[in-house]
């Protein structure tokens, strides 16, 4: 045993800083989950605070706020999946139909842009673009004689804003993988179709789409594992008090409870719950993925 390790000593020497890194920055802080089972008080610290067992977990489901937050998280994520997943496929199919290379390149380049910008920058842009007095949509509404909408402060619209801006940010970049899959389709099939006199829309439907179906299935399974993982950066930068009832999700809620309101232990319980739920989600997605192909996350 030791001899085998000795034989690989240089490899372990390489591995050592990485293992040390994970031990220090990922394993060492895990003792923090103890807070979830305590009534953490600043002056006493984790070592001195009183243990209260599952109190905070019971509060999660009996309390007023966690269940709505969980609901928000699932609803927003479900919509993001529902619209965000097919969008890049459609975009890839559309781009594939473009014959002019210059147009293709320009559209693609533009569509990548939001992906490279932070949510701080994007939220600044979104807030400006949805302004009730200057935003193009609102100006158009007013020109049509309708009332402008304060999208970011309206509970009926806020989730729509979250979902559409998330789709908008990622659609271009996510299309890359489908474009690659489309590029891998053999030209023979199209030629055969050409001979049969099939239109372009039909070609797309009967050849392109089925050819990339395996990729679509894999991607679907992989993304569905992240149903509980919300986008803190996005929501934290766009949310405001008016819409917190529909926009507050687990990560922003954990932040505001644990940091802004000093309910340290309760927030730790929320965080722990989310971690476990995320693990279950990813493992089941992985399990399904394994059954469909040899592509797995792990």
């Amino acid at each position: 045993m030791i001899r085998r390790y000795y034989a690989y000593r240089y490899f372990f020497l390489m591995l050592l800083p990485v293992v040390a890194y994970f031990a220090l920055f990922h394993y060492a802080p895990i003792y923090g989950v103890l807070m979830a089972f305590q009534d953490f008080r600043v002056l006493k610290g984790i070592s001195g605070s009183e243990f209260v067992g599952m109190k905070h977990f019971r509060e999660l489901f009996s309390g007023l706020y966690f269940v709505p937050v969980l609901k928000n998280t699932l609803i927003i994520n479900a919509y993001k999946l529902l619209f965000g997943f097919p969008a890049p496929i459609v975009l890839a199919l559309l781009i594939n139909e473009v014959m002019r290379p210059a147009f293709k390149r320009i559209v693609q380049t533009i569509s990548y842009l939001p992906h490279f910008l932070s949510w701080i920058v994007l939220s600044g842009i979104v807030i400006e673009a949805l302004s009730p007095s200057r935003g193009p949509i609102n100006i158009a509404l007013m020109e049509l004689g309708m009332k402008p909408v304060f999208f970011l402060a309206d509970t009926d619209w806020f989730r729509t804003v979250l979902v559409s801006t998330a789709v908008w940010k990622n659609v271009g970049f996510s299309a890359i993988i489908y474009l690659a899959a489309i590029a891998g389709i053999s030209g023979d099939m199209y030629e055969a179709a050409e001979v049969d006199g099939i239109g372009r829309l039909q070609k797309m439907y009967y050849i392109t789409l089925p050819s990339i179906a395996p990729v679509i299935v894999i991607m679907l399974i992989l993304t569905s594992g992240s149903i509980i993982n919300d986008d803190f950066d996005q929501i934290f930068n766009l949310i405001n008090a008016n819409v917190s009832s529909v926009g507050d999700v687990i990560s922003t809620y954990t932040y505001s409870e644990g940091i802004a309101k000093m309910n340290y232990s309760y927030a730790a319980a929320v965080g722990l719950f989310k971690n476990v739920a995320a693990l279950v989600a990813v493992l089941s997605a992985n399990f399904i993925a394994r059954r469909f192909s040899d592509n797995t996350i792990l």
Binding site: F25, P29, I30, G32, G258, A268, G271, N275
Partner: peptide, 13 residues
């Protein structure tokens, strides 16, 4: 990939 101790322990570290 699946576990973190949370913000406060990380900060203390």
């Amino acid at each position: 990939m699946f576990f973190s101790g949370g913000l406060i322990p990380s900060y203390m570290l």
